[in-house]
């Protein structure tokens, strides 16, 4: 179990570590490291691997929005049911049930502001259980998935010191 936690932490740090490097860092042999990665995937702990993108450095910056959703539940409809309906849309990057003033926090991504607006007003808002939506457009991203977007990684240390 401890190896699994260790490998999981390393994959979260950098999913592109090779199996050989994962083995070297943890002291496992390569076969064990590979099996641990596979088990994490098979058990549904690791659901995928993606790049963390700083869109401001890319030519076509997509429009992203954080959307608050309020819903009403009834005997036949649970949070899960509503989530399943909304999560299926490809525009939805993430969907979380949260505590506080609203129920769901939704991350929406599309090519233009218009697309995001239309998506929210035409696809999300009409869902019968949804009583209110509040859309916040993302204006700038400073840190994402634990990675700070800056250029401050210059190593100022002297190259050889005692």
């Amino acid at each position: 179990m401890e190896e699994r936690a260790e490998i999981l932490e390393l994959l979260r740090e950098n999913a592109r570590y090779s199996v050989a490097d994962l083995a070297r860092m943890t002291g496992l042999d390569e076969a064990e490291a590979a099996a641990t990665v596979e088990a994490l995937e098979a058990d549904g702990v690791v659901r995928g691997y993606q790049a963390v993108v700083d869109w401001s450095q890319w030519t076509d910056e997509p429009v992203q929005a954080h959307v608050e959703l309020n819903v009403t539940l009834d005997r036949e409809t649970s949070y899960r049911d509503i989530a399943d309906r909304i999560a299926k849309f490809s525009e939805v990057r993430s969907l979380r049930l949260v505590s506080g003033d609203y129920d769901f926090a939704l991350e929406v991504e599309a090519d233009t502001m218009g697309e995001v607006s239309r998506f929210v007003s035409e696809k999300v808002a009409p869902v019968p259980e949804i009583t209110q939506t509040v859309t916040h457009y993302i204006m700038d991203t400073y840190k994402d998935d634990g990675i700070v977007f800056d250029d401050e990684d210059d190593d100022e240390r002297l190259s050889v010191t005692p």
Binding site: D155, R157, L158, S159, V160, T161, P162
Partner: peptide, 20 residues
């Protein structure tokens, strides 16, 4: 060694005695 290393570009230094 410090002086030799300082004269070169793109040195990867494993000679540093302090945290990164």
């Amino acid at each position: 060694f410090f002086e030799l290393a300082e004269e070169m570009d793109d040195v990867i230094s494993l000679g540093v005695g302090e945290p990164d």
